[in-house]
Amino acid sequence: MNTWIASTLWGLGGLLAGVVLWYLATVWSSSPLMQQFGPAAAFHSLLEILGWSETWMHVGASLQRIFVGLAISLGVGVPAGLLLGLSNRAHAALTPLFQFLRMISPLSWMPIAVMAFGIGDAPIYFLLGVAGVWPVLLNTASGVRHLNPRWLMLGRSLAATKLETLLYLILPGIVGSVLTGSRLAIGVLWIVLVPCEMLGVSAGLGYLILDTRDRMAYSELMAVIVLIGLIGYLLDSALRALFAALGQR
């Protein structure tokens, strides 16, 4: 059997097993309320909300925040990663600080973000940037430090300037590392986004979670949770496809 077909069938089997466990968890519960959280009600509500223009407005708002957060992560993480990778002194001086900051949950900065930026998209962008910068930074630094030294020696032997070395040797050589960091960052950003969108904004999937809870539309709440997982999976798949298209492993 074709490897791709076999892998797909195994994946579908795993998803089916997850749905069965979900069904059993709601059926065996003694609470009638749990029936609204079951897969049948959730998938029925998912089909309904996918037909609402309001749902796509919330999806668009969340995706916009994700892409802005990723842009901030790349804009800060790639230059900082290059610095750590190219300079032993910078690596020695900054690595302990960065490792310390990385271990602080991005959500811990919520009160400070609201006080500094107010309510709206600005604090969300800040929190997403804080969450996503570390995978990009560390993978970029690792990519630079694991470049084949012969490439750099070749550049020096050809009298390449520092800018030419950066543009034509270093940056092409770390594309795979940056993509890996971006893929990890997307996963972190998507997880952090939902609680961030409970900071007083009026659009987004996190806001929609609160809205369905307040309306006690529990089957819709589960449908939104399924939709969040589905979109996150598609984002990761898109980055994996880009990774494969560039010939990376």
Rank of each mutant, 00 (worst) to 15 (best):
A93S: 13
L152H: 12
L242V: 10
G187P: 09
E54C: 14
L154C: 07
Y233R: 15
L189K: 10
G81D: 03
A42C: 06
G11P: 08
G18P: 08
V114T: 06
L74C: 02
G51T: 04
A80R: 09
L205W: 02
I225E: 12
F98A: 12
R156F: 12
L167M: 14
G81T: 02
R145C: 03
L12Y: 00
P149W: 03
V136S: 03
C196A: 02
L152P: 05
L242E: 08
L137S: 03
L74N: 00
A241Q: 13
Q99M: 10
G204Q: 14
A6C: 10
P79H: 07
L234S: 10
L189F: 05
E54A: 15
L205N: 07
L230R: 14
L246I: 13
W56E: 04
A223L: 01
L16K: 07
P106A: 09
E48N: 15
M216A: 11
R150H: 11
G85V: 00
S73W: 03
F98V: 07
L24S: 05
L169C: 08
S142E: 10
L16Y: 09
G14L: 01
L154F: 02
G155I: 00
L83R: 07
G60E: 02
A245R: 15
A25H: 09
M103S: 15
N88A: 14
Y233F: 12
V188I: 15
L221Q: 10
D214P: 05
G155V: 01
P79L: 08
N139K: 08
H44N: 11
C196V: 01
V19G: 09
G38Y: 00
G155H: 06
G206I: 04
V27T: 14
L63S: 01
L16G: 08
W56C: 03
M57Q: 14
F98C: 11
T180C: 04
L24Y: 10
W109R: 13
S29I: 12
A90Q: 13
V226C: 15
T3H: 11
A160R: 15
L50D: 06
L179W: 05
R213S: 14
A131F: 02
P96R: 10
R89H: 15
L169Y: 04
M103H: 03
L101T: 07
S30N: 09
L83K: 05
L199C: 08
L128A: 00
V59C: 02
V226D: 14
E220K: 06
G51V: 04
L199D: 01
V144E: 01
Q35T: 04
L138W: 08
V224Q: 04
I72P: 01
Q248L: 12
A203N: 10
G187V: 08
L179Q: 11
S87I: 07
I49C: 11
L84Q: 09
R183M: 02
G13F: 03
T212N: 13
D211C: 11
V144R: 00
V188Y: 15
L163Y: 15
G18W: 06
